[in-house]
Design a protein around this nucleic acid. Structure first.
Lengths: 107, 107
DNA sequence: AATATTGTTCGCAAATGTACGAACAATATT
DNA sequence: AATATTGTTCGTACATTTGCGAACAATATT
């Protein structure tokens, strides 16, 4: 068939997975999911990389929709984007579920 | 604290997520999860890219542990690696679950 | 034995990702 | 007003990823 396009599902989950595809970004997500206070400085403190790089990673997570940030005085507060977090959760869940319906494969 | 290392959990899920972070590889996984016959040629047929590139993507998925391949005559049969698929499923599920235990964040 | 089929590997080009320090902008503090 | 704090953006360097065609290796077929 060789269709030129990928499905929205495939694009969507790939986009989220890609954002999760770096240990620094996973640590950020873990941290945000566990903490209530989540200023940039707090995040920066738990990562072994320069703040410029942390800022970049945060941008990628924000672009993927997994987090959001808002300015608060001179600081910036970052949070998990709960709506998209739920969406992502459902996407991955149903993706992995696909196989469970099949008894065996390739035999 | 600024630890130099990331946790095994973070490394592990990042590795899997990275492998899932491309629509072509998601299509491959979807295809393999749905099909019983899964020769290279079948996979190649449903992707809009050259076979050399398909082969590369398959290698990445194999290195990440999500699929496996075995030679069968002149053909190569690819399958989901069910054990690691289950592992990945659990990893993602518990990762996304983290947030559910917290009532609200950042307010 | 010669040829066809099936995938992988090689070599290359272009794009993207990762990381850093320096410079910058915006708000707080003195 | 001058200075300090907080993050982002810029410019750069290097590594990795993605993609392709050509060449290759291995098995099948004629």
């Amino acid at each position: 068939m060789r269709s030129t396009e990928y499905t929205d599902q495939q694009e969507q989950i790939a986009r989220i997975a890609k954002a999760m595809g770096h240990p620094a970004r996973m640590r950020i997500l873990n941290f945000l999911a566990a903490q209530d206070s989540c200023f940039f400085g707090d995040i920066n403190e738990v990562l072994p990389i320069a703040k410029a790089t942390v800022s970049q990673h945060l941008k990628e997570l924000k672009d993927a929709g997994l987090i959001q940030g808002e300015i608060e005085g001179p600081k910036v507060r970052y949070c998990i984007n709960r709506e998209n977090w739920e969406l992502a959760s459902r996407l991955f869940r149903s993706f992995f579920k696909e196989l469970k319906e099949k008894p065996t494969c390739c035999e």
